[in-house]
């Protein structure tokens, strides 16, 4: 039972994280405004909510531009998800983009970031500006709701742990490879190979799930993005590793050459992945000027669940590697017995 605890732990963590990922409700949010730009003068906007119950509230609607608030002078609730609001927009708003805010009594204040473009800029409005809605923090446990993500934010607990697990397995492969250079132990060579195999499985799952998710949010199966380029290079490197192994017949030589390539490629890949986001824009949170787990991406309350998912999947990956490694050991022992 002693060697089993971490496997139970991994499965438990994945189970808890998955249940949380699928069952946690989505926070109510404002997801769309019918107008893309606000011109000075009266503007009528239809606001679309998600998981909201506007009919049970008496919502107040605001536009925020550079810290200045404009309250809607006419608000009409159409149904639980739709409100029509009229704004008298003053001249001279100073920022490019305005946010839309809907303040409710029980669901707090919801904000649609950069809802409107402001075509005519000034140095700040002088009239028609009011106090903003009260800052209310939601205290319930919910996924944040973003207008391009909706329910698909739940993928966070499935897609991202794949990459973490892949990186862990590649690091294990690196350790095995360094050991091969030192000792020439054939078992460690097989361990490195097994770790690369399992890491490629997780890379494949990460790529496929990422591709699906990207199609649903960004509109393309593959986007030219720093993180995607990093992933592609990683997969190419480890496929090249397998090709290199396939082209050498002598086992001892194969082990050594593969280990050298693994160490060399791993270090350069690491530098690449660290440097790349600084060079290119990215759609992913946390890079290229995008906020990481802040603002609208992940509530603090959900962060432990996310880490549970990462740890759990790492455990599952290690378990798969453990099985492969033990199998390799049996194969080697078996080959030895036969040759004698």
């Amino acid at each position: 039972m002693k060697q089993w605890w971490w496997k139970f732990l991994a499965v438990g963590l994945v189970l808890i994280a998955s249940i949380a990922a699928l069952r946690t409700p989505l926070a109510p949010a404002v997801v769309h405004a019918s107008e893309g730009a606000l011109k000075p003068g009266p503007n009528t906007v239809t606001v679309l909510g998600y998981a909201t119950r506007f009919t049970q509230e008496s919502p107040r609607v605001f536009v925020e531009n550079g810290g200045q608030f404009i309250a809607a002078d006419q608000v009409e609730v159409l149904d639980d998800r739709r409100i029509t609001a009229r704004f008298l927009v003053p001249e001279g708003l100073r920022e490019d983009m305005s946010d839309l805010l809907v303040s409710t009594t029980t669901q707090g204040t919801m904000r649609l970031f950069d809802a409107f473009y402001n075509p005519e800029k000034g140095s700040g409005a002088l009239e028609g500006v009011t106090e903003g809605p009260p800052r209310t923090e939601r205290t319930d446990f919910a996924f944040p709701n973003r207008n391009i993500l909706y329910e698909s934010i739940r993928n966070l607990h499935f897609h991202v742990p794949m990459w973490f697990t892949m990186m862990l397995l590649q690091t294990i492969a690196l350790v095995f490879s360094i050991s091969v250079l030192g000792s020439g132990n054939p078992l460690h060579d097989r361990g490195a190979l097994a770790a690369v195999h399992v890491s490629l499985l997780f890379a494949g799952m990460g790529l496929l799930t990422g591709s699906l998710w990207a199609r649903a949010t960004w509109g393309g199966w593959w986007t030219s993005d720093a993180k995607l380029n990093g992933a592609a290079v990683t997969v190419l490197i480890y496929l090249a590793y397998l090709v290199l192994r396939g082209s050498v017949n002598d086992p001892a030589k194969r082990a050594r050459l593969a280990a050298i390539y693994n160490v060399f490629a791993y270090v350069l890949m690491l530098l690449f992945i660290m440097a790349l986001p600084r060079m290119t824009a990215s759609l992913h949170p946390g890079s290229g000027g995008n906020p990481a787990f802040s603002q609208y991406d992940l509530d603090d309350s959900l962060r432990p669940v996310f880490y549970a998912a990462v740890l759990g999947w790492m455990g599952i990956g290690t378990w798969l590697l453990n099985l492969q490694y033990r199998l390799a050991r049996i194969e080697i022992a078996h080959d030895h017995a036969h040759h004698r």
Binding site: L236, I237, A240, L244, M269
Partner: peptide, 23 residues
């Protein structure tokens, strides 16, 4: 050097080298 030691010419070198030279 790796490709030469593997006894495989420029083909293997291209496969091994491309992803690493990309950065």
């Amino acid at each position: 050097a790796l490709a030469a030691r593997a006894g495989n010419g420029i083909g293997l070198m291209a496969i091994l080298g491309f992803p690493i030279v990309l950065p």
